[in-house]
Amino acid sequence: MRSLTPALLLAFSPLAPQNRSLAWKAAAVVLGTLALALSSYIAVPMVPVPVTMQTFAVTLIGALYGWRLGGLTIIAWLMEGALGLPVLSGGAAGLAHFIGPTGGYLFAFPIAGMVTGFLAERGWNGHRVVLAFLAMLAGNALCLLLGAAWLSAMIGIGAAITAGVLPFLVGAVLKSALATAALKGLARR
């Protein structure tokens, strides 16, 4: 197995966020929250949880920004939604979404982005496609697991798995593959 060299760890992302100024990082957070908001508008309505491109954006931001900046960006986006900006699924906003059926998924997003970023910083990035895909898949799986755990408190474990996990499995694999392809494409630059 190939060991992780310091150069590989430093070059985890084509954006090289670890080598950027504070102003660049602040702009990256703003752009990241915009990307997350846009991904929220790409939705297929389902009950009790809609299918969106949010997990695609969450995992990709984690992989591109790293665990710290990625987590901060996702938390900033969630704060925008909590404060009433229309950045959540389908333009939704407000605290009610954080205590309703989607709350567990929302709280899982920063964790998923941070895990994906942590793995990317350790070489699970666009330079190693299979590992990048596994990192993206891990982020998606965390969202489903934590979201379903929250949902199960409201509707029971069986119903939470049926309504909050199973319909999202194929999408999780597809979004992981798409995020990996985007990361690979960016890594070539």
Results as ranks from 00 to 15, higher is better:
1 M>W: 06
3 S>M: 11
4 L>H: 01
5 T>G: 09
5 T>I: 06
5 T>R: 12
5 T>K: 05
6 P>F: 10
7 A>R: 13
9 L>K: 15
10 L>I: 07
11 A>R: 15
12 F>K: 08
14 P>S: 07
15 L>E: 03
15 L>T: 10
15 L>P: 03
17 P>K: 06
18 Q>N: 13
20 R>W: 02
24 W>H: 04
27 A>R: 05
29 V>R: 04
30 V>F: 07
32 G>E: 01
37 A>D: 02
40 S>T: 05
42 I>C: 12
42 I>K: 09
43 A>Y: 05
45 P>L: 03
45 P>R: 02
45 P>C: 01
45 P>K: 04
47 V>E: 10
51 V>Y: 12
53 M>E: 06
53 M>C: 10
54 Q>P: 07
55 T>W: 00
56 F>A: 03
57 A>Q: 03
57 A>G: 00
58 V>D: 00
58 V>G: 00
59 T>E: 01
61 I>Q: 11
68 R>E: 00
71 G>I: 09
71 G>L: 02
74 I>H: 00
75 I>P: 08
80 E>L: 14
83 L>K: 02
83 L>S: 08
85 L>A: 13
88 L>I: 04
88 L>K: 02
89 S>F: 08
89 S>L: 01
94 G>H: 09
96 A>Y: 06
99 I>K: 09
100 G>K: 08
102 T>L: 04
104 G>P: 02
104 G>C: 07
108 A>G: 01
113 G>T: 11
114 M>C: 06
115 V>S: 04
116 T>R: 04
120 A>W: 02
122 R>M: 01
126 G>D: 05
127 H>K: 12
128 R>C: 05
128 R>F: 14
135 A>W: 04
139 G>R: 00
140 N>P: 03
146 L>S: 12
151 L>K: 12
155 I>R: 07
156 G>Q: 11
158 G>V: 10
160 A>Q: 07
161 I>P: 03
161 I>C: 00
162 T>F: 12
163 A>S: 15
163 A>M: 14
165 V>F: 01
166 L>R: 12
167 P>M: 03
170 V>F: 11
172 A>C: 13
173 V>G: 04
174 L>G: 01
176 S>D: 00
177 A>Q: 04
177 A>W: 10
177 A>L: 15
182 A>V: 15
182 A>L: 11
183 L>M: 14
183 L>S: 01
185 G>S: 13
186 L>F: 10
187 A>V: 05
188 R>V: 13
189 R>N: 07
189 R>Q: 10
